[in-house]
Simulated assay, not measured.
Amino acid sequence: MAVTIKDVAKMANVAPSTVSRVIANHPRISDKTKKRVREAMEHLGYHPNFIARSLANQSTRVIGLVMPGSAGVFFQNPFFPTVLQGLSEGADEKQYALQLTTGKTDEEIYEGVVQMVQGGRVDGVVLLYSKVEDKLMMYLKERAFPFVMVGKPFKFVEEITHVDNDNFRATKEAAEHMLDLGHERIAFIGGDLNLVVTIERLLGYEKALREAGHPLRDDYIIHEEFLREGGREAVNELMTLKEPPTALIVADDLMALGVLNTLDDMNIRVPEDISIISFNNVLMAEMSKPPLTSVDINIFDLGYQAAKSLIQKIEDPKEPIKRVIVPHQIIKRCSCTNAPKQQKKNP
């Protein structure tokens, strides 16, 4: 005979409604009562029927995750599996499940999210990106459907809850680190210009150079995909310049790996001939040759805070709009050193 919620209530000496609230992790139930009820559930082998509860509450307890592109590209870059771990832990704490979009194009992803929302498959959505132009974000906003962004919105910043780093400041600090080492010819390898993170980091780079009195050079700014191939293409272009840079700021560790591989093919030494600082501080940054100096943006926490913020919005529609800033720090390794003595002054 199946164990029921009434059996758990009887053993824990509480009302069945209290057991339901403990299952839902209701904040008004004391930790002592929660502990007693959970011990009774474990002793009796009781497992809540979340499907039945969802039907009764008109809630799926599922969060939709929207990727910036196809799943194939998504899992090539270690940023996304790491942010997914944070999302998973944040969702699991409140007993929510995750559902990924599976479209291969922007249009397929859009249609998939519309089906998620209108089909009642999810209670809320996390956008794992922030674009300059994004009709999906506008669709969710216009429907007043609960959603959170990982990244700073390009528009409606005060109207959308988002979790982000201070990317402007982080990149300014990265550029200042190179300037402190005596570098003047500093290039920037960024991602897609339709991504707000790229714009924020580019502005931070430019601000540091202006404050140091160095002119900005258009040929030192290149934008590619956040993939190893993007790094290869960018550094091939930079190192064929008449006056190549002595330092690189690369917006992603995976791109930086492509940069390192290509420089090695060119017999250009890191850091003796050129210094590199990248972003994300994933495992490959530590394991590369040489180990990369990288800006740790606490990717796991970006995901965890996004899940936490979305669930708060789902469970309390009056939850105020907020911006959660996850701290960053530069992890110094072996890919940066003082500028080569033969470095020429900028014209």
Score class of each variant (00 low, 15 high):
Y205C: 15
I189Y: 02
K313A: 05
A247L: 14
E211M: 07
I268L: 09
R21Y: 05
R36S: 11
H214N: 09
E176C: 12
K345F: 11
S30E: 01
V3A: 13
K344P: 10
E89R: 11
K34V: 01
E237G: 13
Q115D: 14
R53Q: 12
D264C: 03
Y304V: 00
S70D: 15
N77Y: 01
T246M: 15
F75R: 14
T101S: 15
L216E: 13
E243K: 15
A15Q: 04
S130V: 04
K313D: 01
D273E: 14
D92R: 12
A52H: 01
A247E: 13
E133Q: 15
Q342P: 00
S275Y: 05
M137P: 04
E224P: 04
A56M: 12
R333S: 02
L84F: 13
A187H: 02
A52L: 07
F300R: 00
S335F: 02
K94S: 09
D180G: 10
G120D: 11
H177K: 14
R61G: 00
V8P: 00
R232F: 07
G64F: 05
V114G: 12
E107Q: 03
E237S: 15
S335K: 05
R333F: 04
L136D: 07
G103D: 15
V37P: 00
N25D: 11
F168E: 11
L179N: 14
T18M: 03
S294P: 01
N25H: 05
M67D: 06
K32A: 11
V282F: 01
M149F: 07
V73I: 10
Y220T: 13
V295A: 05
